[in-house]
Nucleic acid binder design. Structure first.
Lengths: 195, 195
DNA sequence: GTCTATAATACGATAGAC
DNA sequence: GTCTATCGTATTATAGAC
C-alpha cells in the first residue's frame, strides 16, 4: 500500500494532466490545481518543487499509459492493417475531446515548442512513442525508409485532423479524416503483401 | 500620407504579429512589444486598449495579406494541379520557420482554442481563408462534397506536417510530406479530368 | 493627441509553522 | 514529514502628465 505522500502525488499528477490538456500548461496555475485537489495552493510545491517538475511527472505518467496500451496492441493485433486501423479508430473514438481540446500530445508540443525547448523534449517523447510504434508496424509491409515515411504520414494526418477539428470545433472532421486514412491504409496493405 | 498615429499602429501590429508567431500570444507581453517598437511599455495601451484588441488587429492584417496572395494566385494559376501544387510549395519554402515555430495559423488556433473561444474565431477565419480557397480549386476537379473533403485533407496534411516538423525540429519532415502531398494531388488530377 | 508613472492583481516560489 | 502564510516579480490596465 502506498503512503499518503505517494497517493497525494498521484492525485496531483492526475489533476494536473487533465488541466494541462484542457487549459494548456501555461494557463494552468497552482491555484487551479489546488482547488481541484483540495490541497492548499502553496502546498503543491511541497510535492513538486516547480511547475516544470510537475509537467515532467505528468509526461511520465502519460507515457507509461501509452506504452502499456501499445504494447498490449502489439500482442493482440493480427494482420498489419487491423493493427494500424486500430489507432485510427482510437482517434475516431476520441473525436469529441479532440474537437474540444485538440490532441493531448500535439497541443502540448505546440505550446512548449515555442518557449520551452527543454520541456518540449518530454512532449516530443510522447509523440515518438506513437511514431516508433507505427514505424514498426509499417515495417511488416514496407522497406525501412518507406516505413518511416508512412509512419510520419499517418501521424501527420492524425495531428492535422485533430488540429482542424479543434479549430472548427467539429468532431465530424476527425471522422472524415479517419475514413480517408483507412482508405489510404487499405491501398498500402493490398499493394504490398505481408513479408 | 498616413499620420503619426497610423504609422505607430501599423508598426505595433507588425511587431506583435511577429512575436505572437514566435513566442505565442499568451507568452508575449506588452513589455516585449514595447522593447521591439521603441515605445514605452504602457504606451501600447494608447493604441490598443487591450491585448485582445491587438490580436484582432494582427489577425486582420494577416488576413489581408493572405487574401491578396490567394486572389493573385487565383488569377495567375493555370491547371488545377499547378494551382494546388503552389500552396504545397509555399509550405515547403517555409519549412525552416515551420520547424522552428510551427504554422502561424495552426499554432494560434491551438493556443486560443483552449482558453479563448472568442479570439479563436479570428484565428479560425485565417484557416478558413485557405480552406475555402482550396475547396474552390478542388471544385474544378470533383463534385462539391468531395471537393470539401479533399480541401480538408490537404489542409490536414499541411497542418500535421507543420506540427510534426515543429515537434521534431526537422524541416525535412515538411519536405517529405510535401512530396507525399504532390503524389496524392497528381493521382487526383489524372483520375478526374478537368470539368 | 501622445506618452509615462503608477496601480491592481495573479503568478510561481519560499520560509517557516505545525 | 506535511501544510500554510507570505514574499517578490511580472502581468495587464489605468490615471493623469505633457
Amino acid at each position: 500500500m502506498p503512503g499518503k505522500g505517494q497517493r497525494a502525488r498521484a492525485a496531483i499528477v492526475e489533476v494536473a494532466s487533465d488541466l494541462f490538456y484542457r487549459q494548456g500548461y501555461g494557463a494552468t496555475s497552482y491555484a487551479d490545481i489546488a482547488v481541484r485537489t483540495g490541497f492548499g495552493k502553496g502546498n503543491i510545491h511541497y510535492y513538486f518543487n516547480s511547475k516544470e517538475e510537475l509537467l515532467k511527472a505528468v509526461a511520465e505518467m502519460r507515457m507509461e499509459k501509452y506504452r502499456k496500451l501499445l504494447e498490449q496492441w502489439s500482442l493482440e493485433c493480427g494482420p498489419p492493417y487491423d493493427c494500424l486501423e486500430r489507432i485510427v479508430s482510437l482517434f475516431e473514438k476520441n473525436a469529441g475531446d479532440l474537437a474540444k481540446y485538440g490532441c493531448p500530445i500535439g497541443t502540448l508540443n505546440d505550446e512548449l515548442g515555442k518557449n520551452n525547448p527543454e520541456l518540449q523534449e518530454e512532449a516530443r517523447q510522447m509523440m515518438d512513442i506513437f511514431l516508433r510504434w507505427l514505424e514498426a508496424r509499417f515495417r511488416a509491409l514496407l522497406p525501412p525508409d518507406e516505413a518511416r515515411d508512412h509512419a510520419e504520414q499517418l501521424l501527420a494526418m492524425a495531428q492535422g485532423a485533430a488540429l482542424l477539428a479543434h479549430a472548427y470545433r467539429d468532431p465530424g472532421l476527425v471522422k472524415r479524416q479517419a475514413d480517408a486514412a483507412r482508405h489510404w491504409l487499405s491501398k498500402i496493405c493490398e499493394n504490398e503483401p505481408h513479408a
